[in-house]
């Protein structure tokens, strides 16, 4: 049997057998990314709705900035935060580097612009008749904003799901701020990237399978949402 097939068989065995190491790595990944999505959404969804509804100077600039931030490579986000969180950095005293919290902060910073931008775009591109209808029904500004959020709810969930997809699949931040410490900050992506070279190919492959399944689930959730919209 070839090396790949043999490893895949072993890897699937790890998944089926709920291997302890594998479980812990997956749990770390999920905990980190879900917490990051939660924190990012708490900031980005209200910010996206407010900046979409309000007219203010510098709005175009903000949109350019969000677009640019979405394209920043994850290692650059990791690099900048490393500079801030490391012992000699501004927040060095808190000793956050190479902790799950550091990864959470990093991923939150990474996906906040993404969710913000998606929410802003979705709310801005709402049907122009919506605002008029709200006014015709006598809604005040606060009620209008509530209705707009409700109408855009699928887009808000979609933005959150996309944010989660980006967080769970990224390597740069998790590697630079987490450090791939076993039983502590080892995530699926860092494990795949680093364990492979140490010969733990079957474990890496098992993690790859789990990651692909999560990616598929995210896409399935998105297309179900789009189905609801129609």
């Amino acid at each position: 049997m070839s090396f790949f097939a043999e490893s895949l068989r072993t890897g699937l065995g790890l998944i089926v057998g709920l291997d302890a190491d594998l479980r812990q790595i997956v749990a770390t990944s999920l905990f980190t990314s879900l917490t990051a999505v939660l924190l990012a959404s708490l900031v980005a969804i209200p910010a996206g709705v407010l900046t979409a509804l309000a007219g203010f100077r510098g709005k175009a600039l903000l949109k350019h900035a969000l677009n640019a931030l979405m394209a920043v490579p994850t290692v650059v986000v990791g690099l900048v935060l490393y500079g801030l969180l490391s012992r000699r950095g501004v927040f060095g005293d808190y000793g956050l580097l190479f902790t799950p919290l550091a990864m959470i902060i990093g991923q939150t910073v990474l996906i906040t612009p993404l969710i913000w931008n998606l929410v802003l775009t979705a709310v801005e591109n709402r049907d122009p008749r919506l605002a008029f209808t709200c006014r015709a029904l006598g809604a005040n500004r606060r009620q209008q904003a509530m209705i707009v959020v409700h109408e855009a709810r699928h887009a808000l969930v979609a933005a959150t799901i996309l944010g989660f997809g980006r967080a769970i699949g990224e390597v740069g931040v998790a590697m630079m701020l987490g450090g791939n410490i076993e039983h502590h900050t080892r995530t699926m992506t860092t494990a795949i990237a680093l364990e492979t070279s140490k010969g733990a190919f079957a474990l890496a492959l098992a993690l790859g399978v789990v990651l692909v399944v999560i990616a598929l689930a995210v896409n399935l959730a998105l297309s179900l949402l789009q189905g609801v919209r129609r």
Binding site: D127, F132, T133, A136, L137, G138, A139, Q143, I147, R153
Partner: peptide, 25 residues
Amino acid sequence: GLVAQRPYLFDRTVRGNVMLGLGLR
């Protein structure tokens, strides 16, 4: 009460649409 040309209906049921207007009042 004004009904706009090609009126916009909210992304909910018919009942929900009518209820929403009343809720605003």
